[in-house]
Design a protein around this nucleic acid. Structure first.
Lengths: 246, 246
DNA sequence: GCATAAATACGTATTTATACTTAACAAATT
DNA sequence: AATTTGTTAAGTATAAATACGTATTTATGC
């Protein structure tokens, strides 16, 4: 345990203060600690079990989350409860888009897809930090601009790709986002979750996976998916992505 | 003509300096003029005729545009040249998402859909302004966060709505964005453009419009579309939008 | 370790939605 | 008047969703 100069606060093991946090992808860690010293007060750590929902669509907004450790899916629920996964998030990423703005309610839901530790910053604290630190606000802006880029890219994809292409696109996205561990994609998702991201049904995903397995492009052991020929997959959707690879 | 204290520069009529600009929705106008005085130097005004493309997908990024006057469509071109309109922009809005960042190339294209005047800010000027003015950066961030929200909402729509619903959704979006003038939507779009925004084909749009006309929900006189029963339209897609109305 | 439930992996047939094609005609533009 | 663009319609092809069934594998509780 590191000794901070001031009082040691009561903390669970997972409740790491910003000053000792290892997560240098975190915009807060990157920017705020360079100037002020007392940032430990700002945040609260929250632990989520796999499957636990920590943002509910329509609930009042009161802050913003960072993923300290773990993985999260961000979604919107449509008619008849069909869920559209708008993105996944891993360590260092921000959840709760407008947690500091004028929006009254969350327009997305978020569920931990494995055991996850979140850092929570309240609206007011964050707003103050952003307005007093131009670099921090700038980095936040860049984060959103990037996400916007990706999202608009996805709008195009979904409206122009076939189911097969969308499933492949999702596989490549997961590969980029979470990478590979021991040959398998380093995240465990159900077929339903692949479907919810690709904007199709579970059955279609299973069918496409079967075809891809037959074609030796991927292989699977239960929920663990391995990509055997990433270039082969990329080729199939390359015509859709002239300029962007994100 | 207002008299600025310093030298009067050579300017075309449309090339309005920030100091006399009437566009108080503009983030630059709103934030920067309050502090610095010499902003007229920062920007260049560019005039576009209807139909003129001023951002080409894949071209090198060197700055960012504001719409001073007029209307613009922002799109991505997919396979076989099919174009997906990701959004429309009107006075005060920003075009060219990452015009100040590290991105090398524009990932979107932009075309003026009527005669338009743009203000152009170079990458470096803008970056400097953002990093020295937290409120400006904050406002930019909010703009992108909003756009992200809308875009993710659209991802959901496209993957869960029927063609009819998507066309209605587009009509309502246009209504919110551009409003009504003399009973008609205050923008002239082709059926193709409605289709490109709704992620469908021109013929489908025409078919849906026909049906909506029969049902007295809309009426049309050529390209001018009037919404007769906005609540009726909203009802059809209300199940998809529990929480968000943007 | 075993029983049971749940998820996964197919197959196939039906229905529906959407896309594509063509053609004829109207309207607007030059 | 000629040409382009927009509109409407109808028919066909295709893609996708839906609804089955059923074996197999994988979790989970006891």
């Amino acid at each position: 345990m590191p000794t901070t100069s001031s009082v040691i606060k009561k903390r669970a093991a997972f409740d790491v203060g910003c000053e000792v946090c290892e997560n240098y992808n975190c915009l807060i860690k990157k920017n705020l600690l360079l100037t002020a010293g007392s940032d430990a007060l700002l945040k609260r750590s929250i632990r989520c079990k796999k499957g636990q929902q920590f943002i509910i669509e329509g609930a009042p907004v009161n802050g913003l989350f960072f993923v300290l450790k773990g993985k999260v899916k961000v979604f919107r629920t449509g008619i008849n409860g069909k869920e559209q996964i708008v993105r996944f998030a891993k360590e260092g990423e921000i959840i709760g888009h407008r947690g500091f703005g004028t929006e009254e309610y969350y327009s997305i839901g978020a569920i931990a897809i494995e055991n996850t530790v979140l850092c929570y910053f309240s609206k007011s604290v964050l707003q103050e930090a952003l307005l007093s630190n131009a670099k921090l606000a700038y980095d936040f802006m860049m984060f959103y601009a990037d996400e916007l880029n990706r999202s608009e890219s996805k709008v195009k994809s979904i409206s122009q790709m076939t189911v097969r292409e969308r499933v492949i696109d999702t596989l490549l996205y997961i590969h980029r986002k979470f990478g590979v561990n021991k040959g398998y994609l380093d995240v465990v998702l159900s077929r339903k979750e692949y479907a919810d991201h690709a904007g199709t049904t579970e059955e279609q995903v299973i069918r496409v996976f079967s075809a891809l397995k037959t074609e030796k492009l991927i292989s699977a052991s239960g929920k663990k998916i391995a990509i055997n020929d990433i270039q082969g997959l990329k080729n199939e959707i390359s015509e859709h992505n002239f300029y962007l690879d994100s």
